Amino acid sequence: MNTLLRLDGLARGQDAALGLFRLYLGGFLVWGVWDNITSAARMAEFEAFLRALDCPWPALAAPASVWAQLLIGALLIPGFLTRWAGLLLTINFTVAVWLLGRLEAPAEAVAREQFGPMMCVLAGFLLATHGAGKLSLDGLLRKGR
């Protein structure tokens, strides 16, 4: 077979790719909610946003979502309990996709608003089903067993 068509060399980089993916996503999640954690005003803004989306119990949902995202990010960075973090990521952002899907706006606008949260749903599925890879705390713990 032509060596240009062989992709098995790329497959060897899958653990590094998963590691970079986890680091970026985890870091982004932590960065994205840090202001809500450190500022009551920003948390109140997020609660108002959820209220405007007609989210049930926005006073409870806002901090629950923020703290869940912080926990998920903190677990993804070192790759610890990655499958559980992926499952929680999927659940958290499925709610966001559902809430945004109820917007009274043109379908194209709703689809654009849902893109980021839907990518988090899919990322969560990927991590929940594939795990963190070898370059992770999960990988080190599994290797030690």
Rank of each mutant, 00 (worst) to 15 (best):
M118Q: 08
P63S: 02
L99W: 11
A105L: 04
A96D: 04
L126M: 06
K134P: 09
T82K: 02
R112G: 14
C120S: 13
L141E: 04
L122I: 12
A64I: 08
P117L: 05
G73D: 07
L141N: 00
P63A: 00
H130C: 13
N92A: 15
C120E: 09
R112K: 13
L126F: 04
V66G: 06
A109G: 07
E113D: 13
F80C: 14
A111I: 00
L135R: 11
T94F: 02
L70H: 05
D138A: 05
E108L: 13
L140Y: 05
G124E: 11
I77P: 09
T82I: 01
F93Y: 12
E113N: 13
M119G: 02
V121F: 01
R142F: 09
A64V: 11
A62C: 02
E113L: 11
A74L: 15
E108N: 06
L70Q: 02
L75E: 07
L75M: 09
T82P: 03
L89P: 11
T94E: 06
L141T: 11
P106D: 14
L88I: 00
A61C: 04
A62N: 03
A109H: 11
A64C: 05
L60R: 07
A74H: 03
F125D: 07
L126V: 08
F115K: 01
S65M: 12
V95Q: 07
V66E: 05
G124P: 07
N92K: 01
A68R: 01
L137Q: 10
A62R: 08
G101C: 09
F125L: 14
D138R: 01
V121H: 02
G79W: 10
L127M: 05
S136W: 00
L76C: 00
Q114N: 06
R102L: 02
A68C: 10
A68F: 06
P78Q: 04
G79T: 07
F125R: 08
A96L: 06
F115R: 04
A74C: 12
L99V: 13
L140H: 09
M118T: 10
A123H: 10
L99T: 13
L76W: 14
F80I: 15
